[in-house]
Design a protein around this nucleic acid. Sequence first.
DNA 1: GGACCTTTGTTCTTGACTCAGACAAAAGTA
DNA 2: TACTTTTGTCTGAGTCAAGAACAAAGGTCC
Lengths: 389, 389
Amino acid sequence: MAGGSGTPGALLKLIRDGSATTRAELVDLTGLARSTVSQRVDSLLADRLLIEAGGAPSSGGRPPTLLEFNRNAGVVLAADLGATHSRLAVSDLVAAPLAAISGEKPIADGPEAVLSWVETEFARLLEEAQVSEERLLGVGIGLPGPVEFASGRAVSPPIMPGWDGYDVRSRLERRLGVPVLVDNDVNIMALGEWWAMDRPVDDFLYVKIGTGIGSGLILGGHLHRGADGAAGDIGHIQVGDPTVVCRCGNPGCLEASSGGAALARDLRAAGYDTEVTRDVVALVRAGNAEAIQAVAEAGRRIGAVLATIVNLLNPSEIVIGGDLADAGAELLARIREVVYRRSTALSTRQLSIRTSELGDDAGITGAAAMAIEHVLSPSGIRRLTRELA
Amino acid sequence: MAGGSGTPGALLKLIRDGSATTRAELVDLTGLARSTVSQRVDSLLADRLLIEAGGAPSSGGRPPTLLEFNRNAGVVLAADLGATHSRLAVSDLVAAPLAAISGEKPIADGPEAVLSWVETEFARLLEEAQVSEERLLGVGIGLPGPVEFASGRAVSPPIMPGWDGYDVRSRLERRLGVPVLVDNDVNIMALGEWWAMDRPVDDFLYVKIGTGIGSGLILGGHLHRGADGAAGDIGHIQVGDPTVVCRCGNPGCLEASSGGAALARDLRAAGYDTEVTRDVVALVRAGNAEAIQAVAEAGRRIGAVLATIVNLLNPSEIVIGGDLADAGAELLARIREVVYRRSTALSTRQLSIRTSELGDDAGITGAAAMAIEHVLSPSGIRRLTRELA
DNA sequence: GGACCTTTGTTCTTGACTCAGACAAAAGTA
DNA sequence: TACTTTTGTCTGAGTCAAGAACAAAGGTCC
């Protein structure tokens, strides 16, 4: 009864993902009666979630009316908060930004300071995009640390002093009056990259290789968060060299040998002026042999971990993102080489490994997508319909 | 419309898992009207899926009627086919066997021979348990190799000559006339162990350490099969020593160093008469220091892989099964030690690691459970109700 | 012990929703 | 221009869940 195949939300989903563009196609896909589809579509048209977009060519009879998702039926606010650098946007309902800003706001300033800043910038964005507040439907936030998704709280974040247990959701919901969803930054990047796929696959892994290394998992068509919201934390998998101690205190972590910070550190020790990941990328692009070599080694180590994951999860697709993903073809080539060599034949039969399509936009896209999916879910639609009535 | 919270199947689920025992509790849990619950329950009573089991003490008003799932509303057939050893059973609807047999039938005899044998034994079991054929509701089969679950075919099985692409489901459905579900043997063990849990957790890993090493994953409350049905194949994750070549042809596979066959091989090289895994277990139980040492080393290597998996998936529970799991406390202790040392603190916060409750019964229980879950799902219930009408 | 309350479960009416079929609209086709 | 095809709307009938009234079966309190 709550969200079956005939519900307005289900029909909207078919229109949104392009499976159907006319009432007749909805009838074919759902098996519902023409009258029922018509009635449901009317309700969606009344809510302005769908619009009629002219006619299509006839196939021998009366030409159908094209139905289109109204991406301007509302807006969502999205924030991708990083350790020092953050991006915020107001986006339409296909996650395209109407207005966006970047800002340098250290997450270490603590929740009060950071969230006040976010609230101020959100207000500014709504003004800039000239959207009235009643058109705001939801908010998506990404934080650079573990999040208990169900409650919207940060949990034991290693690089976010003062945030442990802070109820980000309640804080923002009280202020903004719409549903607020909070998740880990790598999870929302995975969601963004998944959202941008032409045909989203069921089992998908997003790997962010930046200062550190993390991943987001889409399994069975759903974001996998694990029992404590800690899933995807591949940066602290212990591999090889136990003499290098990670910032987390343990020896041999993957990111302590192969993250952007680690490569910058190693190249600095070799006499180069590499401070951050981008400096490493610049060296690689300049054709520096040592840097290329270092990145290749990192690729092999990351590939070894990914090979393990491929054997375990048998995903259809792996996307490599993060700053170091821009370091040319060498990284991807090494990762591919090791993954295909070290995984079983069956588990790589459908596997594709590629770099991110969205690049730096993955996070903000995913934060918006998370909010959109929530407000346009069957239950969200019912809420909207009630409010408009 | 298809399987919402008010559907008979949903109510049955609440009774089956013990969430509700009376109509009033169903009302509380579902939020449905008393009249609606009453009507639905009547339909389930008419189908004999529920039975009224006397009254419960009053809490100050009219005492409620206890509702109980009728485990004898039908039976399922279950088969756990191994490389050489197989187990078959007729089970009631809580997966308890009414009659069971074991048999030595080499899977390498090929699908025709093996499945004919299975059909004969199934018929014998139904006779032994004195259940008429119309009470048979479904069949669950486990095969020792990868299976494409959706179609019920074996795919590229390494140890099942002649089975590649064989349509096990159609073959048995044609003969038996009820839904047949086919899955990998480790997957059904995972399902069995999960089914037997008091409060099933959402994210769970079953690890079978027998001749080889494999695993089954329950993620988000569903069995995770991956894009090719190859998920969980941790035996061929490459770790450490690349001089040992696995039976799969690759070097350094986990099971080539730490599986039961590998331990038996190593101990044989050291002069012991260990042929199969059970011989290793016997040596360990006899207190042999070399055998204990070998098992401990295996435990550490397996633990290292599991630590990686814990960081990646953040499961709530890991269960260790398979013949080698019986080798005393040393294996489990080493696995635990390494997992807790090498995983992040957050990801082990809720983690428990234990040995199998069901032991050798995990597979047959899981095969039955797989069939039961299918026929008692909302869509299965509708089918049953139609048939009875 | 009897009046009253509480809790459980059923019956009956009402309203909402879906479907099928009739009807209308808008094209192509002969 | 008449007919067919396809799309979309309207209407009456049937189904299903909700709510309220009613019945049943116990406890509680004086």
